[in-house]
Design a protein around this nucleic acid. Structure first.
Length: 683
DNA sequence: CGTCCTCGAGTTCC
DNA sequence: CTCGAGGACG
């Protein structure tokens, strides 16, 4: 339909009509699953709108359906901090685990009747979509749950994702959580097209969707035909909108906002209701248009969800019931060993390539010598493999009737294959270790990789390949050497272009600005992981105080016992380690100074044990804990006769009962605040 | 001394 | 993700 000859006024009207028509088609297609226009008709509408907007650029709005492709991708893949963390679900694999889940919920809530909203578990990519006043502003991947990647430009190309919400219904702020995935039919079409073009095909729809979302060019994402299903919300400011009371009502509400929500849901009660749904979905799995890897059970009532709360990183009110992992059989062509950062020598089964659970597997760890014996895996055996938790390949069992006569048993080598040092297995320990220490190139490389890893110094681009080259060429021996690298020197290496060399140098440079906790973690002290490094940094506040600490001082730190204390003292007693630390500081590695946290023997609440329970009116439990600890108090997880105070908020449960039983003093929030205030006046 | 829980370490594939 | 080890607690 030619746009020529239109006046600006009539063009504006027509553009609005077209947008509404296209939007309505998207809505019927993705949300209602009842298309009324053919693809050709839809394309004609779209072409007319594009022509119109081309002739009258003033008509262009950012949320026009023609603008799905073409948004700038400049901030693509930049980190986005989730306002509300995107947690993962706990998994159940057996009937017993599902029954235990239901029992735990009923016991915690002290009721027999709990309604669950149940839905399929999509096998795609978890995404959060943020809308401000009804406009789509940011979309991010789950990432590590705390921060994800900005993929807004690519998400805009997905027609199932509304760019604007109905004005009258949209709250001021809404983050919709859901899954981006590729329908099986689109996946087959994509692979057929790839084959026709002699390009690589994708192993499964999930990988194809992930690949599609990580394109730098949104046009490619658009051509991949991705779709989206909403299943929850993150951050929200309700404004005038009345919050839905149940998860089911929330989903229905999201649907009125034009988000696709799967119809494969049900409301059930009791463990048998959950298990019936699992069985039904298992039977329907093949015939569904998308891939699922299990089902999800959620307590329907949102108030009860809040009451149940969270355990560490997963909600207590929901669980994923996964379908059993796919298994395959293959042959063990050899058993090699690998040397880790601490010198741990682990046997690895080399496998004839086999396709299982969506990928081709060629290696599987056998963990340690005992595990090899327990499973009785021999070279030449035919074994059953699966991907444990759908990720890490695992040898399940040996098919003994297929064992060839010449099958060979694994023998732990006496000497390290990397450095020739002795391999020693201490009495009572499961792991064998290479005694070479940093003389062993494998350990040296792993130590450097650990130093550079994301949760340590976060040096992007310093990967396995590069570390191999640098260590083999003896350019880098200790982490401190990294800070003397020049872009010119790096560019000398094979397969290293000027641009990437400059990037690595910039990343190394940026890592100079760090935190004490990251630095302590990066050192790679035995038994000191991320959590302990944080505890140490918080407790001592300063590296020199940590280095000077003796075992007794270290025992004062949270979760540090004799083994850790010994390990830390030994690490800093080593002259070589202190030299490296000095070299790092001289190279400009630094962190903000902090005063040491009040030691256990100091602070007004020193030596007093608190237990927190229920929801406090004005602060989170974490905040309360931080404030108690700041004054030397201790926060424990369960009530015992050693507990001095139980701080009880709303919906406090068994802990409160136990406190009353034991005659422990019970505080409410205001009493706690008073206690904290009294202390804050003092130094 | 035993049990439960958390943390550390190693691991696969793309 | 899984196993093993260390630490806290009863």
């Amino acid at each position: 339909m030619p746009a020529a000859g239109k006046t600006p006024g009539s063009a504006a009207t027509r553009a609005r009509q077209l947008r509404e028509a296209i939007h309505a088609h998207d809505h019927r297609y993705y949300v209602l699953d009842a298309p009324t226009a053919s693809d050709a008709e839809y394309d004609a509408l779209m072409r007319e709108l594009i022509a119109l907007e081309h002739e009258f650029p003033a008509l262009l709005t950012p949320d026009s359906p023609t603008q799905r492709v073409g948004g700038t991708a400049s901030d693509t893949f930049m980190p986005v901090v989730h306002r509300v963390p995107m947690l993962s679900l706990n998994n159940a694999f057996t009937t017993e685990e599902v029954e235990a889940f239901d029992r735990r919920i009923r016991e915690t809530l002290e009721t027999d009747h709990v309604e669950y909203e149940v839905e399929p578990k999509f096998d795609g990519l978890a995404i959060g979509l943020t809308y401000e006043n009804g406009s789509f502003v940011v979309g991010a991947t789950r990432g590590d749950g705390e921060r994800g990647e900005n993929v807004t430009a690519n998400l805009r190309t997905i027609s199932a994702i509304p760019l604007a919400l109905p004005k009258a219904l949209a709250p001021p702020l809404l983050e919709v959580r859901g899954e981006v995935l590729m329908l099986k039919a689109d996946f087959e079409r994509l692979n057929a097209a790839q084959r026709a073009k002699d390009q690589r095909t994708f192993a499964n729809p999930r990988n194809a969707a992930a690949g599609g979302l990580r394109q730098l060019d949104p046009k490619i994402t658009a051509s991949r035909k991705l779709t989206f299903f909403a299943y929850g919300i993150g951050a929200v400011e309700w404004g005038k909108v009345k919050p839905p009371p149940t998860h089911g009502a929330l989903l229905a509400w999201l649907r009125t906002l034009h988000f696709p929500v799967t119809g494969e849901r049900a409301k059930v009660t009791g463990a048998d209701g959950l298990l019936r749904f699992y069985k039904t979905m298992g039977e329907r799995r093949e015939s569904l248009p998308f891939e699922i890897d299990g089902v999800v059970y959620k307590v329907d009532d949102l108030a009860l969800q809040r009451e149940l709360g969270f355990v560490s990183r997963a909600p207590r009110f929901a669980i994923a019931h996964k379908f059993p992992a796919q298994e395959a059989t293959t042959e063990v062509t050899g058993i090699d060993v690998n040397v880790g950062r601490t010198g741990a020598v682990t046997p690895i089964a080399r496998l004839a390539p086999v396709f299982v659970g969506g990928v081709t597997v060629t290696n599987a760890t056998l963990h340690n010598e005992d595990e090899v014996r327990r499973k009785d895996v021999r070279i030449g055996d035919t074994v059953v493999v699966r991907r444990a938790g759908d990720v890490i390949p695992e040898v399940v069992r040996v098919l003994l009737d297929k064992r060839p006569r010449d099958a060979r048993e694994f023998v732990m080598p006496a000497r390290c294959p990397e450095c020739g040092s002795a391999i020693v297995r201490l009495e009572g320990e499961a792991v064998a270790r290479c005694e070479g220490g940093l003389v062993c190139p494998a350990q040296r490389k792993q130590a450097l990789l650990h130093f550079a890893s994301r949760r340590a110094m976060d040096i992007e681009g310093l990967g396995e390949k590069l570390v191999d080259q640098l260590v083999d060429a003896k350019t880098v021996r200790t982490p401190a050497d990294l800070y003397n690298l020049s872009a010119e020197a790096l560019a000398q290496l094979p397969r290293m272009a000027d641009k990437s060399a400059a990037n690595v140098v910039a990343a190394i440079d940026a890592s100079r600005d760090t935190t004490l906790a990251r630095f302590v973690y990066a050192l790679g002290i035995r038994h000191v992981g991320e959590a302990t490094a944080k505890d140490l940094a918080l407790h001592f506040g300063d590296l020199d105080r940590l280095i000077a600490a003796d075992a007794d001082a270290l025992l004062e730190v949270n979760d540090v016992g004799p083994v850790l204390a010994q390990s830390i003292v030994r690490f800093f007693a080593e002259a070589h380690n202190r030299q490296v630390i000095d070299a790092l500081r001289n190279a400009g590695v630094h962190w903000p100074r902090r005063a040491p946290r009040a030691a256990k023997s100091a602070g007004r609440l020193a030596g007093r044990a608190f237990v927190l329970t229920g929801t406090l009116p004005s602060m989170t439990r974490d905040e309360a804990q931080a404030r108690i600890e700041a004054q030397g108090g201790k926060v424990a997880g369960s009530v015992s006769k050693k507990t001095d105070y139980v701080v009880a908020g709303a919906t406090a449960g068994s802990k409160l009962a136990r406190a009353q039983e034991l005659g422990v003093e019970i505080l409410d929030e205001s009493a706690l605040l008073k206690l904290l205030k009294e202390g804050e006046g003092q130094p």
